[in-house]
Write a protein that binds this DNA or RNA. Sequence first.
DNA 1: GCAAAGCGCTGCAAAAATTGCACTGCTTGC
DNA 2: GCAAGCAGTGCAATTTTTGCAGCGCTTTGC
Lengths: 311, 311
Amino acid sequence: MRFMTSLKFIDVVAREGSIRKAADKLAITSTALNRRILQIEDEIGQPLFERLPGGVRLNTAGEIFVQHIRLQFADLARVQSQIADLSGIRRGHVRIASGADALRRLLPETIATYRASHPAVSFDLVRCYGDESESRLFSLDADIALIFAPIRAAHVHVAATLRQQIHCVMPADHRLAAREQIRLRDLAGEKLVLPTAQSGVRQLLDTGLLRRNVETDVILESDSFEFMQNFLHFEPSLFFQIPIAIGAGGDGPANDFDPRLVARPIHPDDVPAGTLHICHLKGRVLPVAAAKFLDDIITTLRDSYHQDVDQ
Amino acid sequence: MRFMTSLKFIDVVAREGSIRKAADKLAITSTALNRRILQIEDEIGQPLFERLPGGVRLNTAGEIFVQHIRLQFADLARVQSQIADLSGIRRGHVRIASGADALRRLLPETIATYRASHPAVSFDLVRCYGDESESRLFSLDADIALIFAPIRAAHVHVAATLRQQIHCVMPADHRLAAREQIRLRDLAGEKLVLPTAQSGVRQLLDTGLLRRNVETDVILESDSFEFMQNFLHFEPSLFFQIPIAIGAGGDGPANDFDPRLVARPIHPDDVPAGTLHICHLKGRVLPVAAAKFLDDIITTLRDSYHQDVDQ
DNA sequence: GCAAAGCGCTGCAAAAATTGCACTGCTTGC
DNA sequence: GCAAGCAGTGCAATTTTTGCAGCGCTTTGC
């Protein structure tokens, strides 16, 4: 897209924070890039960047303009996929930002199903915590975000929510495995494996544990659910998940939760249920492929996971 | 805006329906323009125009793309005015499409009041009928439309509505001037001066007259309310207006309705009240100036005209 | 029925722009 | 106080865009 290059250049400079670095990335000389930026600033009538000793940074006008640029790119992509649709090709690209919770089963399954009927649609999946997911929506680097945490920013539109009770995962022969529900006081003295502090699961757990003053033994902290689950086979301990991450509740053939492990819900009086938010940027027209995929996620949750989905 | 020229060119070609005509308008050669269009079609991967013997016409892909282009231009204008706002200049431009009804008092008064506090904001006013107003919103040639007629297109967002009973305007010494309300049967044999068939007032009147089979004498048809009002001084006859067009109801000093004429409402059982719609394009973020002006119109109607405004 | 006019499109040379190189002035970090 | 890294500038090379002349085509008018 020749007519978008100057705009793309500005976007990259804004991201890199330096004209020279951006020029490197764009495979042109810094002088050419510099002049393009000066020219556009001239056309706008105001500088878009502050010149700092170590590079450049967007000023307020630049922030506004770059946001406009990113929206243009996203909208152009939408228009292109819409035009491609006309010739029956049905191609497109969907960019998702998701917490680790949805990576075990929900997203792999939904994406595979979607691609079965639309093989020309490609996907981008970035695993990140709630705050980054939100900012990815805002910078239009993601079309859809799955966030298991409270939503902070006003620019996020929540298309659907799903209540999830935190479960305690343990070896099948653990003394707590006999219980139907776990109380927090049961965890006293137990060895815990916890997700990092940024995780929504951890935040919910922490408030419960702090309030009740339960003395626990946190032996491991990780941002990888897979690692934590594997760890349990080597040192008996407890870790925590939400149902969609466990894969329980799904009725497909691939309920792949490890048979040597069991999951028991924590009593809702101790730790309240959290909310999985399925979101996109407020006021944005999603590309056809992304809009359709968003529908698919919600349908999958309702039909296959038998979960109450609020829309 | 150098980086928008190619897009502007496509927009103009689409409007002109011919590359050569568009090239004339843009003050370049048709060959240069032609090649720019071929290049963009190449980048899009599909033709945007059908080549006809007498010129070119947008195909479906082109329709989608041109709509995108126009939105970009409108959004760029919004961004620019937002950036200008930062430096405290508060400039901007508001484009209005309105029926003749709002031209007597509502728009002059509201625009003047607005400009008193924002002297750097300029206005564009195009007088047109409902259908054209709607298409102007769609082609982003207008930010705001005032339409006294039913809304047809789905892409129009109605920000506020105002019920308006049609009034019959006549010389003060007319035999009907004594009545508080006019019935359609009173009009039998009267000489009528009517707005053109495209006008909302005319459409409402026609359905009433047809249903009741009233025999009338239409001596004049015009699209100019001013002309029709002046005509009444030379040949006693009846013409029709809605309150905001008469200027009645306003409590400002400029109730400029001609003292030699009087207006009497038509009985609502004969001709139902019509609706004035104040609209903008659905899903569009209006430029700051336009958004503020839209608020002002609604406030003026509510406060100064004491009209019930539905939002 | 045939010429004239109008249309989109192409080869080629001129004009205009963008780019890269060498270099300046500036600040920061060691 | 000197090297390194930054944005910006003059100038020549390069790439892109433009204009001219002309082609093939269809419609219009006599």
